[in-house]
Computed example of a mutant assay.
Amino acid sequence: MLSPTPLQTVAVCSALLYAKFVVTAITGAGKKFNSGNRAPEDEAAKPNLKQSFGIDESTALLPDQKEAKIEDIRWQRILSNDVENIPLGLILAWGSTVAGGNPTVTVVATIAFTIARLSHTLAYANGKFNWRVASYGLGLFSALTLAGNSIAGAFSS
């Protein structure tokens, strides 16, 4: 039988990270409107904002569009980073739980991974380089810890 504390922790953190992903995706989609980076047909949703996937060179940028393009790209990168890291981290967390890794290690590493991914988004969204790098490093360390804990659990008697 699976230990309830790691199972509960991984389940809650999985739900939190999925909710964070949804908020990030929706925020990023909104940033695309302001920068003109949505498909041309999307102008129907906001007719006052020209949309051209951001590649219409014949149209000069509106005063606020340069900053909007930067924000759009920033949120695209946040989303890309989440897509690269969250699924694998959660697979490792579930693996650590199911393989019978040390329950305390599973709980602490999963919570640390979740906090790292949330703080990474906040840091990236606010242009805080050192905070972003530290958050990424904590997430990476947590995922590696979960990987090791999974292997230890799988080979324990």
Rank of each mutant, 00 (worst) to 15 (best):
G95N: 07
G137P: 08
K32W: 07
Y124D: 03
W75S: 05
N85D: 03
L62D: 15
K46H: 14
T5G: 07
W75K: 02
F155Q: 12
A154S: 15
N34S: 10
M1V: 12
E57N: 04
I86C: 00
E67F: 07
G137R: 11
D56R: 11
T9L: 01
D72V: 01
L146A: 03
G95D: 10
P87D: 11
I111F: 04
K20Y: 09
N126A: 09
R117Q: 09
S58C: 12
F155R: 05
S14N: 08
N102L: 03
N81C: 04
E67G: 07
L88K: 12
A15R: 11
S80G: 13
E84C: 00
D64H: 14
L49W: 01
V10M: 11
S96C: 10
I78M: 00
G139D: 03
T121L: 00
A116E: 02
T27W: 02
R38S: 10
L88I: 05
D72I: 00
D82V: 01
F33M: 02
F141A: 14
L2Q: 14
N149Y: 08
Q51A: 12
Q76N: 13
A109Q: 10
G36N: 07
L2D: 15
E84H: 02
D56F: 00
L146V: 04
S156N: 11
L62S: 15
D42N: 06
V108T: 12
N48R: 05
T104S: 00
S14L: 06
V10C: 06
L92I: 10
I115W: 09
S14W: 08
S150E: 04
I115K: 06
A39M: 15
R77T: 02
K20R: 11
L122Q: 13
I86D: 00
S156P: 06
A15G: 14
P47V: 10
E41V: 15
T145E: 03
A134H: 10
I78D: 00
A15Y: 04
G153I: 05
G137I: 11
T5P: 12
C13R: 06
L61T: 00
Y124F: 13
L49H: 00
Q51M: 02
C13H: 01
P103K: 14
Q76K: 14
L146G: 02
H120F: 05
T110K: 01
A68K: 05
